[in-house]
């Protein structure tokens, strides 16, 4: 795990803290750094910064550092931390906001997580539901990862658990229009 140098707090960072608080509706200042979230986090072992350090970086306004961290992408959204936090700090909601901010800023540290999310959503936009087979092919091509490690297509097909053809819903384009309107909106962070 990396250390954080506290003296680099910038006044400019205050705006970032305020923006993250407004978007996530999480009062990050109520966190008193007890570390309970990190103690019970099943993914902390793989993170570069432990969950309570992610909050600390937001408190200090260390925008670049937190938005390019791996930690925000390695959070499994398992909700352990919020269930246990003595200050009711919604860390999973904060992680969501930080991931979305990292997307916008183009500082995504875990490229394959973001790639998968994109392919998944493209598939949902096209068919209304994700189609594993076509996602698998594209993911394989773009990530350089072996598809057998990821989806186990042949074994699933043998058991009747994956189909070659996508299932397309008949919704007269309702799902596509949902995507279109969402794109036209400002992301809904302020809601």
């Amino acid at each position: 795990m990396k250390t954080i140098e506290l003296s680099s707090v910038l006044t400019a960072g205050k705006a970032f803290t305020a923006k993250v608080e407004a978007d996530s509706k999480v009062n990050v200042r109520s966190c008193y750094q007890c570390g309970k979230c990190s103690a019970g986090c099943p993914a902390a072992y793989a993170m570069d910064y432990a969950p309570h350090q992610v909050i600390r970086m937001v408190q200090l306004g260390l925008e670049d550092r937190v938005l390019s961290s791996h930690a925000i992408w390695l959070c499994a959204s398992c909700e352990n931390c919020i269930t246990r936090c003595p200050r009711d700090v919604d860390l999973p909601a904060l992680m969501d906001t930080l991931r979305r901010a990292a997307y916008k800023k183009g500082t995504v540290a875990e490229k394959n997580v973001a790639l998968f999310n994109n392919l998944f959503l493209q598939s949902v936009e096209t068919y209304g539901r994700p189609h594993e087979m076509s996602m698998m092919m594209r993911y394989n091509m773009k990530s350089g990862q072996l598809m057998k490690d990821v989806f186990r297509g042949p074994e699933l097909m043998k058991r009747g658990k994956m189909s070659l053809r996508p299932e397309k819903i008949r919704d007269n384009g309702a799902v596509r229009r949902i995507f279109g309107r969402v794109r036209a909106s400002s992301g809904g962070e302020q809601l």
């Binding site: 969501d96 998944f120 919704d171």
Partner: peptide, 21 residues
Amino acid sequence: EWNCCGASAAHNTDRLLSLAL
């Protein structure tokens, strides 16, 4: 003709989408 809920891909990407789907 139900549609996908968007799963974590949606709430990682866009709050509005994660509620609309």
